[in-house]
Nucleic acid binder design. Sequence first.
RNA 1: GUGGUUGUAGCUCAGUUGGUUAGAGCGCCUGAUUGUGGUUCAGGAGGUCGUCGGUUCGAGACCGAUCUUCCACCCCA
Length: 456
Amino acid sequence: MSQKPSIPKGTRDFLPFQVNRREYIYDTIKSVFKKYGFAPIQTPSFEHSSTLMGKYGDEGDRLIFRILNSGDKVKKADLNALEDGNLPKFANSLAEKALRYDLTVPFARFVVQHQNDLTFPFKRYQIQPVWRADRPQKGRYQEFYQCDADVVGSDSLLFEVDFIQIFDEVLSDLKIPDFTIQINNRKILSGIAEVTGEEDKIIDITVAIDKLDKIGEDGVVKELLEKEVSQAAIDQIKPLFSLTGETQKMLDFMREFLASSEVGMKGIEELEYVFAKTEILGLRNAKLDFDVTLARGLNYYTGAIFEVKAIGVKMGSICGGGRYDDLTGLFGMKNLSGVGISFGADRIYDVLTELELFPENINQTLEFLFINFGEKEADFALPILQKLRNASVPSEMYPESAKLKKQFKYADDKNAKHTVVIGESEIKNNEVTVKEMQSGEQVTMSVDDFITKYCA
RNA sequence: GUGGUUGUAGCUCAGUUGGUUAGAGCGCCUGAUUGUGGUUCAGGAGGUCGUCGGUUCGAGACCGAUCUUCCACCCCA
């Protein structure tokens, strides 16, 4: 081997056992999405640059993978823009397409484009890879899968309630024992900015208090001062940092805090509704927590916001979501409210690995391996093998009469549940010898009995 | 995008102030064992030391660039 091949940074290959595990996660998510009435769609890996650019803020634009124009289209490069130092304009002239950055913005484009074919409220789920030109870290890749479910065309809070049930059901089905669904409402955050007289600094304020559990109270205060939030406002906000305890008490506190803000009170009302309905339905493994300091970066959210964290694992959030009132407005379709959630499948994979929660049988995909003793024995075995396959029992025969040690090791490596030995004596008596690999136990039975037992 | 960190066999890692032929464990292959894998024993294969360039009589080690890994920011799943 001369030069070792490699793959670009932030990308990964997946071995069979890894793909099996990943599909276990996707299948679990999919089955719950379907149960709640969501239908699948897919969108292309790449979109027009103009569809994506400017939708995720300056920070997001930087992370969008651009696709260089090919062929004669390179001639479209705007050299004047380059000379003038207008690099964004130059880049746009050079790259008319870009890789999908998330599933939500392409979905908004999809809804506007196909509005006449859709029935509203439209509920879709989508499981596809997305790409970000981010600097990789553990659990952060340049190519990763998102598993999204969204509803557009309804402002009913019942969907917020549904999504909480979906989080609970999926993660409980995946056997995650302990996780918290944190919930907040952008209207409450707006209310906070309003009552403190810092309405124009709402983004700075939310970004800062979102970091509370990371940089602490002093860190947040420092950042607020840096963003020129007034000392009076900071003093007013400070008590929110230590707001914990019973949900009802926190909500009461906030109601008082936001009394003079109409939008803030609306946020409280919405939250109370969601808590009340969830109370009625109950939750399996999840804890639902009101967290005033939860903000989330994406600034298209306008109502509820969610974030889910596994307890006992050092890992960022594994799911997120929220309501956005006017995402399709960006593409010219006004007044369409949407709400959606996203499962971070790659991070869930890491959590399940760390907590050893993958079921063992995921990678036991081979039921029977037939040991090959030679042509005569193989001829005897092949019809039996075919019967197993017709009954959808995953089975195979070793392709040549290699040493038994080698054949059994192959069975072992492939995690075969049984091996079937057919040699001279078995053929003579019309029998098969079946060995259960894990226990090592071995029984000989007639071919008919074998077929009745396993090809049902 | 900013600052740091890492790279030696398939994997995990040793390798002294620059000095002959670069090591270990695990894994892999072969045999002991031509009707039995996961245990044991014996033997064997496998490396342009991430890449390119520089310093030097001499570089795995020193210098530069580049790619990659991981970490802290930024941001985020």
